[in-house]
Amino acid sequence: MTTLQTQPGHADDGHGVHDDAHDVAHGSAEHAKYPFLQHHFDTPYHQFDSAKLGMWLFLATEVLFFGGLFVAYAVLRNRFPEVFSYSSHYLDTIMGGINTCVLILSSLTMALAVRFAQTNRKKGLIICLILTFMGAIGFMVIKYFEYTHKIHDNLVWGTTFYVPPHDAVGELEAKELSVAPTTSITLNPVNPAVFAVPTLAPIPAVDASAIKQASRAPVGLATPTQMAKAEGLPTGEHDPSFAHPATHLVDKKMPANSHVFFAIYYAMTGLHGVHVLAGMVVIAWLLKRAIAGDFSSDYFTPVDVGGLYWHIVDLIWIFLFPLFYLIH
């Protein structure tokens, strides 16, 4: 293991003169030697070190960005534990597992790409970047199949979860739902000081037929089967030949509020997917520059920093996977 760079010690402790503080006299000679060195940095190390700190700060913002969703997940799971443990079985663990492996492998090739860039192996760098890119494509393809499968089964977000749009009736209703505001506050014409409260759905366990009465109100806290009944949809309860794709509507064991699981599932994996797409753009850009021969053992900061971004995408998936697919 070769450490070529003596790491500056506790340079940021606020005492004494800084060893990473810049130095104009030193700078000018370095600028002549390294054309990539920007005018306000003194040495390649100075530039590299600043870029790394900047990237780590950006990664911290990414952690907090996803952190909000993780917090939402924790609160919802804490509120509806039965929903999470039950609905999780609607996800395909094997597909999720394969996707995890694909991302880990692409992370490995990215780490190798950085190594190849550091050691001037242009061909290795290009191959590794292509492999990483392929990994990203593979991940998105598997994700695409997962999503389309779920959407086909109507395991979707929001009210549509209870109203399969494949159904002619359902389609009409889904449209209505998307147009009408889900809750409405109406002023009493007699006495404007009194507000009628939003028409919330009643507790379905009490009276499933009441759901129909508040039919355009949000579906609230109903189990999928009760909702399907109330909507007048075929549930297949008495008809064994019934083959509706939305099997969760006939799943009597599925707890109320199951749509919440899928809402947070799509929110988190969707945002992660957007990050994978962004990562693909970054890798493609690195590839273009690598082919142009921009990187060498002197200058590989973009590969390193792009790699850090790709690893954080992997890191987030490492947590998403057990939180959604591995609930017993």
């Binding site: 070769t2 070529l4 950085v114 550091q118 050691t119 001037n120 192996r121 590989f300 390193d304």
Partner: peptide, 15 residues
């Protein structure tokens, strides 16, 4: 700087 196998002037080379 372009010799294959050269060492980086910054950062750490992980085996």
């Amino acid at each position: 700087g372009k010799t294959p196998g050269a060492h980086p002037i910054v950062g750490h080379l992980v085996p």
